[in-house]
């Protein structure tokens, strides 16, 4: 069936630059669509220089809808299904949103501006998250949301690629490959070549404690940032992330204080948690904070995933695959240059 596609749309070979979450998903879906794919990554398999290394891995299309364009929720919902299919994981964890008493007005606004949630009272909240019993008198439960652990899920997907026969070349990031089609998924590293791309810093802290158990990510209403406390394996919790307009990737004392006090506000036992790691990633963003798939001859750039790398990468990969196999374009996020 693929033989019916014109040669222009069906390149003999595809080189994908960047094995972060965006490039990995492109490689996965394009190789599955029958293309001959090679993946290049400047870093080693630990991907410590990748923005995703510092990501929360939240798959929260409804919550993110509070302050983003509808396209994020639309693509995010599609991505959730693709993640489910890929990981064949169990039921989704959902997200629980709570607010400090003083931020009640912002909590009500959040409820009004997002879909996909149930308002839960103290009793139901205590069933969902026994650790938080008595801490909050209400919450918003987004049952259909989910999360993945970036540092575990990417190696898993890379192993899948190997099984598919996709070669991953570490320590190599050619600006473009010779022959065939190049898909540039370098994120913020491509900012010199991608017009309008800017860096937005996200700081996060990982703590470890056995005194708190959470079944799902808890988002605390904050006047400026979406702050999540994401439970991870081995009694670890990721607290993040800030959203700061800067290309400096250091972590400030002020941000650390705010992140840690957010955790403390959710549960006082976090006061005794051990700090495991503090770090920051630079997210690539366009001025409208929406992603772009830019098609320019034999080069496609997938960038601007902003705070939503894990949330958007599968859906964007599907869009590229649909374009290459059926010549269809998503007008909201794709452009032919």
């Amino acid at each position: 069936m693929l033989h019916d596609i014109s040669a222009k749309r069906y390149p003999a070979h595809i080189s994908i630059i960047g094995a972060g979450v965006a490039g990995t998903w492109q490689a996965l879906l394009l190789s599955r669509a029958g293309f001959d794919v090679t993946l290049f990554e400047r870093d080693d398999p630990a991907l410590k220089s990748s923005t995703g290394h510092w990501a929360g891995g939240m798959l929260a299309p409804y919550c993110e809808g509070e302050a983003t364009e509808p396209a994020i929720t639309r693509l995010g919902l599609r991505s959730l299904d693709l993640w489910d299919q890929e990981l064949a994981s169990g039921p989704r964890s959902g997200t629980l949103v709570v607010a400090h008493r003083r931020d009640r007005t912002d909590f009500d606004r959040f409820a009004r501006r997002t879909a996909g949630h149930d308002l839960v009272d103290a009793e139901r909240l205590a069933i969902l998250e026994p650790a938080l019993a008595g801490q909050f008198d209400r919450g918003l439960f987004y049952a259909d949301e989910h999360h993945v652990e970036p540092r575990k899920v990417l190696p898993h997907l890379h192993a899948r690629l190997n099984d598919h026969g996709v070669a991953i070349h570490y320590g190599e990031a050619p600006a473009s490959a010779k022959g065939g089609l190049t898909i540039d998924c370098r994120g913020i590293a491509a900012r010199d070549q991608v017009a309008d791309l800017r860096a937005v810093k996200g700081e996060m802290i990982v703590v470890e404690t056995k005194d708190v158990q959470l079944n799902r990510p808890v988002r605390l209403i904050h006047p400026r940032w979406p702050l999540y406390i994401v439970p991870r394996a081995d009694h670890h919790f990721m607290i993040g992330a800030t959203t700061i307009e800067t290309d400096d990737d250091g972590v400030s004392v002020r941000s650390a204080l705010e992140l840690l006090s957010a955790a403390y506000a959710v549960h006082p036992a976090f006061a005794e948690a051990r700090i495991v790691e503090i770090g920051a990633g630079l997210r690539p963003a366009f001025p409208d904070n929406l992603p772009r798939v830019r098609i320019d001859g034999d080069r496609i750039s997938v960038n601007g995933l902003y705070r939503h790398g894990f949330l958007l990468a599968p859906a964007l990969a599907e869009l590229t695959a649909t374009y290459l196999t059926r010549d269809a374009i998503d007008n909201e996020v794709m452009q032919c240059v």
Binding site: R198, T246, D248
Partner: peptide, 16 residues
């Protein structure tokens, strides 16, 4: 204060 940590402004944001 926020956008200038380390004496660097968010150049891109500033140019916007």
């Amino acid at each position: 204060r926020r956008e200038t940590a380390g004496g660097k402004t968010g150049d891109a944001f500033w140019s916007l």
